[in-house]
Amino acid sequence: MTTVVPLVCFALLGVGAVLILARLARGPSLLDRVVATDALLVTIACGIAVYCAVYEDISLEPVLLVVALLAFVGSVSVARYIGGMLVSTADPADRGADADLAGRPDARREGTP
């Protein structure tokens, strides 16, 4: 229980966290980064819970609660922030979205110049 299971769990979590970090660095728009941050915080919470479970150490469980709540507050506040940008400046927001698409050629529609 204390040799194989944490090895497998932390290997899976580590590879997943590296992939999420790659999306967090590459993400063409701010919303991709919000989604990646959410997934990263969930991965961190899973890692803390696996540590608590495997080594039967309950000293980190308040951190688990804080991380779970912080993910919600962070993603909601950033989403509200982007929505506020959209409402206040309608036209530059559209140009910003187009610039995001222009920086990512695979997201451009086929057939449009």
Partner: peptide, 27 residues
């Protein structure tokens, strides 16, 4: 152990999906 490994595997699939999928809703 089975529950822990299954949950960690879902975190790995989240990373793979975030890398592979094309836009925000898919991710």
């Amino acid at each position: 152990s089975v529950c822990l490994i299954a949950g960690c595997f879902l975190c790995l699939t989240a990373g793979l999906g975030l890398i592979r999928f094309p836009d925000v809703l898919n991710r």
